[in-house]
């Protein structure tokens, strides 16, 4: 090897390690930002995180402030949203993947669903205000908010369910048909059980997104201070993100810490939802292999 060649190898190796470093930095960057954010929130919020904080109503005193109505409001909305969006979303995915003929109309629907997934959430809020709150006169209620949220996450559920259904091996499907089953029997007996982990993961991630949304709910009419807990779906409500936002804009500086405590609760619920998704996925995956 002459000198020139050695130099070329050297420069190539240098390039290699430079890019290695660069990409590593990219990876670390996100983690560092997250860690800083978490550190800041935990430092401010942890001392304020007490049982009282969970069970109290908001108050003008930072020390007495609690997140109870927001917590319950969020849970109400999430459960109703899931109940509304899950069957419709999975149904649509089954229709599109298994029943629909491959023609322009189906393509058109699929294209629209993909586009809807990218529509900003505030637009759904306006839609919810016009359709559910006003036209269907549900008022500024939990129900109207849940319908709006269901619309918001429907495209995500449909798309992830489609992916899950598409991943079912065609050998399994054909084996089922070979036994003389109808399409419906194959769908419920083979396709759905196999696709369920994927469907669930997609759904729970979509619901986590809905949990953190504030913009569409403000448009639909979420309140800032409620002295009560929604007892029926037609009651008024507030939610976690709205409570947090309100605290962060209060004049008293201690409310910043209350907001941080609220963020910890919200993060906790999100983490819980995501780990549920993982646990369910693992559980059902094992069952199929047996």
């Amino acid at each position: 090897m002459d000198n020139k060649e050695l130099q070329r190898i050297k420069s190539r190796k240098l390039k290699n390690s430079v890019f290695h470093g660069l990409i590593f930095f990219c990876t670390i960057f996100g983690v560092i930002v997250l860690a800083l954010l978490l550190y800041d929130i935990l430092k401010k919020g942890l001392p304020w995180l007490t049982i009282d904080f969970l069970t109290n109503f908001p108050s003008r005193f930072p020390k007495k402030s609690g997140i109870f109505p927001g917590l319950l409001g969020s849970l109400w909305i999430i459960l109703l949203t899931a109940a509304l969006a899950f069957p419709v979303g999975v149904g649509t995915a089954i229709y599109l993947e298994e029943y629909a003929k491959e023609n322009r109309f189906t393509e058109f629907i699929k294209l629209n669903i993909a586009n809807l997934a990218g529509v900003p959430s505030i637009i759904y809020g306006m839609l919810g205000l016009a359709v559910f709150v006003r036209a269907l006169s549900m008022g500024r209620s939990v129900l109207a908010a849940s319908f709006t949220m269901a619309l918001l996450i429907l495209p995500i559920i449909i798309i992830s369910s489609q992916e899950a259904i598409r991943s079912v091996p065609s050998a399994l499907k054909q084996a089922s048909f070979a036994l003389g089953t109808t399409k419906w029997q194959t769908v419920t007996g083979v396709i759905l059980p196999y696709a369920l982990p994927g469907i669930l993961t997609g759904t729970i991630l979509a619901i986590s997104r809905a949990l953190g949304e504030a913009a569409p709910l403000i448009v639909v009419g979420a309140l800032t201070y409620v002295s009560f807990i929604p007892k029926t779906p037609l009651d008024q409500f507030t939610t976690l993100p709205i409570q947090i936002f309100n605290w962060s804009s209060m004049p008293k500086r201690e409310f910043q810490n209350v907001a941080a405590a609220g963020i910890i609760i919200l993060l906790g619920i999100l983490l819980l939802a995501n780990s549920t998704a993982i646990i369910l996925r693992d559980k059902y995956q094992i069952k199929i292999k047996d």
């Binding site: 309140l223 201070y225 009560f228």
Partner: peptide
């Protein structure tokens, strides 16, 4: 609202 609610626990007050 907070103070009024203390005296009237069955009352629902909502502030936006």
């Amino acid at each position: 609202a907070e103070e009024f609610k203390k005296a009237n626990p069955d009352l629902n007050i909502a502030v936006g």
